[in-house]
Design a protein around this nucleic acid. Structure first.
Lengths: 200, 200
DNA sequence: ACCCCAAGCTGACAATTGTCATACCAATAA
DNA sequence: TTATTGGTATGACAATTGTCAGCTTGGGGT
């Protein structure tokens, strides 16, 4: 089983590579510390499996999975992340990933999960398997998401407008919309809620 | 060299334990997934070294280090964290830690750093060693920090007041103070800045 | 050609937030 | 005793934010 590992935290990446190499049936053919590299490595080596984090600089692991789906790549994608966010799982499944594991997981089970995926099965973290699909869909539009992201960084309405080439009023309208949809009490609250559901 | 490892992410903790056990001169005598457990393990085993994360549920790694300093424990503390925040480093050094490592670090160097600390030396991540002490001190008061934390979660001025038993006006005063001290443009910006400097 | 809709925009108004000056009280320092 | 100071509170005012209704414009559908 040939795999590529993408994870931005050097320490964890190194530790996992070392451990996976100890498994007789696993070969780590490539490593990446961001999404761009991950994509390049997969295209170069066409491994059986890409084991990837979600939150990485540049392209996220979900973006990489989507791209590989478009490429009709034979490489199977397994996500490994800290976040048990419904939205992430849904996006992952939409992107055709075969596994979704949480970093809240004993190392010993990792190789096993990879083998299951290699054998054609799925490997979804048990905490998530239940409500897998009954996660509410993201109600936000692209604009609302963009505006919310900047609001979360502390930008004022007009500064957000400058960044996105929108008028201040329009930005306020989008924020108001988002606050309403998320039943938040203000922009910061809305940002938090969207983030924790995996919609940003 | 007997060590206790405290890290809340199961996967990383497990991986590090496995790797450290491969080192002939290192023995992992205890594991903890939060600060309370870490303190208990250290008191129970009196290891040579406590290798600990900072951000963990309950007590932070910095709190544990402070407590061990008060205990006059012989166990040396080595911090391992994602965050290169000046404030964290300063607090760590104040708490008498012997090492401050970043997770942005090759695994191979970990055992080496532990050995250096065991031998009586320090191990500070090179990225930080330079400006170690010239980090600006935290200008915020306890109240300002408390108010800022809640503001960062999206609470309104009055809700913050309710939580802290302060009037809305007072909360606004503290926020205004904090915003001024940090040269932020509003509460969210102030929250971000304080957070990224390791003051929250 | 006609209708509908989404993306943007504006204006008006209320609520919240940010700034400042001032005040009170208890504890501490001189 | 008499400042001084830190923590808390008010009130007043301006700026920003949140809500809402309504306007324009440029595609799609039919």
């Amino acid at each position: 089983m040939r795999i590529v590992l993408a994870e931005d935290q050097t320490l964890l990446r190194g530790a996992l590579v070392t451990l996976l190499k100890l498994e007789p049936d696993i070969e780590v053919v490539g490593e990446a510390s961001d999404g761009i590299q991950a994509l390049a490595q997969v295209r170069k080596w066409a491994p059986d499996i890409l084991l990837t984090d979600i939150e990485m600089p540049g392209l996220s692991g979900l973006d990489v999975a989507s791209q590989l789906k478009i490429d009709a790549s034979a490489t199977r994608v397994v996500i490994i992340t800290t976040f048990a966010r419904g939205g992430y799982l849904r996006r992952a499944l939409d992107a055709g990933v075969r596994g979704y594991l949480l970093k809240e997981m004993p190392v010993e089970k990792l190789a096993e999960a990879l083998r299951r995926v290699h054998a054609g099965a799925r490997a979804i973290a048990p905490e998530l398997a239940l409500d897998a699909w009954q996660v509410e869909a993201d109600p936000l539009t692209d604009r609302e998401r963009a505006v919310l992201r900047l609001a979360g960084e502390g930008l004022s309405t007009i500064d957000i407008g400058l960044q996105l080439h929108l008028s201040g009023g329009t930005v306020r309208n989008y924020l108001s919309e988002a606050i309403g949809k998320l039943q938040a009490s203000n922009r910061v609250d809305a940002y938090r809620l969207a983030r924790q559901r995996g919609w940003l």
